[in-house]
Design a protein around this nucleic acid. Sequence first.
DNA 1: AGCACA
Length: 330
Amino acid sequence: MRAQTQASPRLHHNQLSIFHPPSQQSMHPPPVTDAPAIQYQQQQQQPYDPYYLQHQQLQLQQQQQQSLGYNNQGDQDKKHIHTIFVSGLPDDVKPREIHNLFRRRLGFDNCQLKYTRGNQVVAFASFVNHQSAMAALNALNGVIFDPQTGATLHIELARSNSRKIFPSGSGAYVVIDQRQKASDAQDTLSNDGDGGSDEPSGDNPNSSNKGDLATAESDETRVDPDNAEPAANKQSGKTVAVKVQPCSTLFIANLGPNCTEEELKQVLTQYRGFHVLKLRARSGMPVAFAAFENKECATEAMQSLQGSMLPSSDRGGLHIEYARSKMRKV
DNA sequence: AGCACA
């Protein structure tokens, strides 16, 4: 009997918890001193999720910012936007997948999947503040969502924030179906009570209510045709050629000059199947190679950590690719 | 853009 090794090839964000610092930490000092900004997992076996702690901190931070008048909407920039707009999704995407894509991200609040009239699928994800939204945007933009079709996520800041439908941190998601043809959108509202619900279980075909959640639609969440780019050619019968051959070893670049092997290892050990890390400093800028048990594990880690900032990062977030050759087993 | 170890 075989184990369930052939899960869905799509993203499984089961272990993501890296600190995404504010892209531009503005006028406000870092939150508080009683909790470190980075909470590494100390290689424990027990499931450890700093998400909730950090989530609470972020909410506190946002309240402080609001009370200080930083959420000034007179600004022409988008500092007040804490919702991101996601396109490039395959049309068979499930709301659960969107939720699982974002639920572990720092500062996540809620998300909604939307079927547009043009038979496109887009999603909105809201965070507790602008920085968290930007961190998620930077981490997931350009990520291949479905390796089999090559569908690539295109993420940008939403034009306006989603209306808050659920209490913060409830982790709920919403489906809005505007398709013209017969719709098969089923669940409109779900909670994740338990921690581990990433398995690609069978879809439940209970199309009980449709359209009642469409009241959540507003001009805030309207989708413009120019806002949603045509996704990868998933219509063609053939599978699209991928950029780089997937490999169980990852190539990690854009590290800060002071990046240490320990620092990177602390992060990588949070991901399933991680084995060995090798750091190589060359001409000032170090690069690293991380070996995983298999390509799937490597892919998960890459997709979660893409663009993430380390404490030592000073030239932007991590740049991760599949290595060109597998790490020699030593 | 930068991909080693054997």
